[in-house]
Design a protein around this nucleic acid. Structure first.
Length: 501
RNA sequence: GGCCCCAUCGUCUAGCCAGGCCUAGGACAUCGGGUUUUCAUCCCGGUAACAGGGGUUCAAAUCCCCUUGGGGUCACCA
């Protein structure tokens, strides 16, 4: 019976820590995560830091932070451990020399002593002759014993894999059958002159030793795949199944880079995009479920994800869609969560002193309640609530227009100020308590023969400096009686300044 | 340039594998309208696509070929 037990599903996300966690990388991580969770498998994180020049600790940290922000916790990997460590490729490198030895001993690889200059020259020649850019196998002529002797004698050289004749067929889970003729491949270097192994070799070893069952990665790796399959076969490894997901393209087409938009997950985290919005957005780039559902929680994605539904063509990055999702989830989160997210930003903006956080919480919650369906990511909250903390020193265009347009708005406001002061008691100005303000304004407008808009719009302009805010009376209730009356008392000045009457 | 991958509204896509149910569906964006103290939400409606050409078939968005277009990749980088 035991032979019927299907092999465990193990996938990995294997970023190289150069720079930041790219949005495309995050999506690759998501697809791996989803696939693992869906099938009860294991999601492994492996850091491919073999490029010592370009790898940085900050970049490694950015990967951890980015994945955690998105909620894609790995089952095995750095800071987590597991039975297949170490999870930094740099720490794994030494263990591959025995594989190199094996290839050498079996005649599947050979030492190459060609100088870089010769290689460059060769390449130039081939380019000029419009030939395939391939190593010419000069060192294949060196007898193995002779090569060993020279190697032991200290002559610098690399080890090349001898690509056999024939073709390799990849049954890609997304792309279907991909056939590559071996003559298109050159004898790739597997071990450098300094004794370290090259990426294409290291992955094969790592994936094998980590018992990776499915390799889900970007399409840019598709051309690496035949090399890795060949290497794996030469070593007698069980080769994993492959799934190459389409790339994310920049808006006008072409590779997405920092020129086009923020491409680092860290940036989006900083801007305060809700992770569930990010996840939903990422998932829908290149994957779809049916013709009905666009909104998915992580849990639903786990349930509904499948590689067959990943599309083959590249997806263009569309910030507007992200923003739409951002706004969508903003309306769904418990307001308390939103307050937690907003508070630090308000402190940083200087609106709230850090020691006042606890005291201000209730008021911020009311603001958040009003603003939540007007923002797409949390950083936008700062500008939206500025007028609660700072007297509006300038008016936006809309507000200016309102004040200029209404002929006797200034006197209306003065009458309103006196009236509201007398008619609406202090305790009807608390956050959330705006019914009395509302009723009073309607009454006054009726008495003056004005529409509510005639009264409310100039009021809003004076009170907030804006022509667009949440419901005026809700806003006023949060602002408080004293602040409102103070701002209204200066209405004349403001009118004079903008040229209204 | 060689090789590989891809091709439905502006964008993400459903439909294609198992050809008729497609006068091609949804979402974002956009444009109108409604609700509203403004904005946003919400609701209603509109514009908008099978890249082109050949086949196969009674029938093709769906299958095949070519062209065109786009992307990727060709390192002692990962």
């Amino acid at each position: 019976m035991t032979e019927n037990v299907p092999p465990a599903i193990r996938v990995r996300f294997a970023p190289s820590p150069t720079g930041y966690l790219h949005i495309g990388g995050a999506r690759t991580a998501l697809f791996n995560y989803l696939f693992a969770r869906k099938h009860g498998g294991t999601f492994v994180l492996r850091i491919e830091d073999t490029d010592r020049q370009r790898s940085t600790p900050q970049a490694i940290q950015a990967i951890f932070d980015g994945l955690r922000y998105l909620g894609l916790e790995w089952d095995e990997g750095p800071e987590k451990g597991g039975a297949h460590g170490p999870y930094f490729q740099s720490e794994r490198l030494p263990r591959y020399s025995r594989y190199v030895e094996r290839l050498l001993a079996e005649g599947k690889a050979y030492r190459c002593f060609c100088a870089k200059e010769r290689l460059a020259e060769l390449r130039q020649r081939q380019e000029a002759a419009k030939e395939r850019l391939h190593y010419d196998r000069l060192c294949l002529k060196v007898a193995p014993a002779e090569a060993e002797r020279r190697h032991r004698g200290g002559e610098p050289g690399v080890v090349r894999f001898k690509v056999p004749e024939g073709q390799t067929v990849i049954e890609d889970m997304i792309r279907g059958r991909v056939v590559v003729e071996h003559r298109e491949l050159e004898d790739l270097i597997v071990q450098r002159a300094d004794g370290t192994c090259v990426y294409n070799f290291a992955v094969v070893g790592d994936d094998h030793e980590m018992e990776i069952s499915h390799v889900i990665r970007g399409e840019d790796h598709l051309s690496n795949t035949p090399k890795q399959v060949l290497l794996g076969q030469a070593l007698g490894f069980q080769v994993p199944r492959y799934a190459h997901i389409p790339l994310i393209l920049a808006h006008g087409g072409g590779k997405l880079s920092k020129r086009h938009a923020a491409v680092s997950v860290t940036d989006y985290q900083r801007m305060g995009y809700l992770p569930e919005a990010m996840i939903n957005f990422l998932a829908r780039m290149g994957w779809s479920y049916d013709d009905k559902q666009e909104i998915f929680t992580l849990e639903e994605l786990i349930e509904k994800f499948s590689l067959e539904k990943v599309s083959k063509s590249g997806a263009m990055y569309d910030l507007k869609k992200l923003n739409h999702l951002g706004a969508h989830y903003m309306r769904r989160r418990p307001v308390g969560d939103l307050v937690d997210l907003a508070l630090p930003l308000l402190v940083r903006a200087g609106f709230i002193a850090s020691e006042d956080i606890a005291r201000e919480r209730g008021r911020v919650e009311k603001m958040m309640d009003l603003e939540r369906d007007r923002i797409e990511f949390m950083e936008q909250i700062v500008e939206r609530v500025r007028y609660y903390y700072q007297e509006p020193s300038t008016l936006d265009d809309g507000a200016t227009k309102v004040l200029r347009k209404k002929p006797d708005a200034a006197t209306v406001i003065e009458r309103y100020a006196a009236s509201v002061d007398a008619a609406v008691p202090e305790d009807a100005w608390r956050p959330g308590e705006h019914a009395a303000l509302d009723a009073h304004a309607r009454e006054l407008a009726a008495k003056e023969g004005l529409s509510l808009a005639d009264l409310a719009q100039p009021l809003r302009a004076i009170l907030t400096g804006r022509s667009a805010t949440p419901g005026l009376f809700e806003v006023m209730a949060i602002l408080g009686k004293a602040t409102c009356l103070r701002r209204l008392a200066r209405a004349r000045e403001v009118f004079a300044r903008v040229g209204g009457t």
